[in-house]
């Protein structure tokens, strides 16, 4: 039994090292004074000079602001549309066209980004020619494209949450004469809220991170942060990108840990309330 425990520990250790060493090394060298990035300049390091330079770089800061706006908007759109699609697919029973809807919500999960990008751009070009909208390409077109490819993720998360509990509560409320809209807002929505929140976060991250689709559907003056980073790192490593990466990793890690703890707490609270409600009934 003991050597099996050892096997488990060593494979997990190895795998996690593989996942984390590159990130940690990138963070470590962000404090290196040398322009060569990976050659440690022991005399003048550690230094914060690349962080200072980063906050003086208005181009990158502007791109970051654009990315935040797009990510927040498209995550919200994706959360609404994805929740509706998830609800329709799990609760509305069979209807004509259900298979197509189901296919359209899972395909973007695996569709190569270059195909999505070219398809979206050609649509926007054709639409502009036909009806004059959307005029040119920029924030609007990137947001629409991001809503489309991220809503699939929200749908999957919401769907598996909805499949996880039966519709007895909803049925009971309907039997008691509640309107479907009331049932949705009073029962279904609170139950699937954790799924919607994690779906929103997932959509936000995917949008914030996307470079390929954005590149296809962006226009002049609407470079997102990943597009800026991509054009820089294509020319090789640069110390200020290491500083930027460090900041982003720290923000994300804090956010993920905090939201995980928050969701765990909500779950526990709900379970407790459920238990109390049960023990109230004789």
């Amino acid at each position: 039994m003991n050597d099996r425990g050892l096997f488990r520990k060593s494979i997990l250790g190895l795998g996690l090292a593989f996942l984390y060493v590159p990130i940690l090394s990138m963070m470590f060298f962000s404090f290196n004074n040398s322009r060569l990035v990976t050659v440690w300049d022991a005399e003048n390091s550690p230094t914060l000079r690349w962080y200072v330079r980063l906050f003086e770089n208005e181009q990158l800061l502007g791109a970051a602001w654009i990315s935040i706006k797009i990510a927040a908007l498209s995550a919200s759109g994706a959360a609404i549309l994805g929740t509706l699609a998830g609800l329709v697919l799990t609760r509305f029973g069979p209807f004509r066209g259900r298979a197509l809807l189901s296919a359209m919500t899972t395909a973007p999960l695996v569709m190569p980004e270059v195909i999505m990008g070219i398809a979206m751009l050609l649509l926007f070009v054709a639409l502009e020619q036909m009806i004059g909208w959307p005029e040119g390409r920029g924030l609007l077109t990137i947001t629409i494209a991001h809503v489309t490819f991220t809503m699939a993720y929200v749908t999957v998360v919401v769907q598996s949450r909805l499949a996880g509990f039966d519709d007895a509560l909803e049925e009971a409320a309907l039997d008691l004469g509640a309107k479907p809209a009331t049932v949705f807002f009073k029962i279904t929505l609170p139950l699937i809220m954790p799924a919607i929140v994690s779906g929103w976060l997932l959509a936000f991250t995917l949008s914030w991170d996307d470079v390929v689709i954005s590149q296809f559907v962006s226009g002049p003056g609407s470079s997102t942060l990943p597009m800026e980073i991509f054009s820089r790192v294509r020319r090789g490593v640069s110390p200020d990108i290491n500083a930027l990466a460090t900041i982003m990793v720290l923000i994300v890690a804090t956010g993920v840990v905090a939201s995980t703890i928050w969701m765990k707490r909500q779950e526990r609270k709900r379970a407790l309330e459920e238990q109390m409600a049960r023990s109230d009934t004789p």
Binding site: L19, Y20, P22, I23, S25, M26, F29, V37, T38, T205, W208, D209, V211, P226, I229, F230, V233, G236, V237, I241, N242, L244, A245, M248, V249, V252, A253, G255, V256
Partner: peptide
């Protein structure tokens, strides 16, 4: 956790 951090930057880390 790494999946939540930028995909692009994680690929970039390998250049270094």
């Amino acid at each position: 956790l790494p999946f939540w951090t930028s995909f692009l930057l994680r690929v970039y880390a390998w250049i270094g």
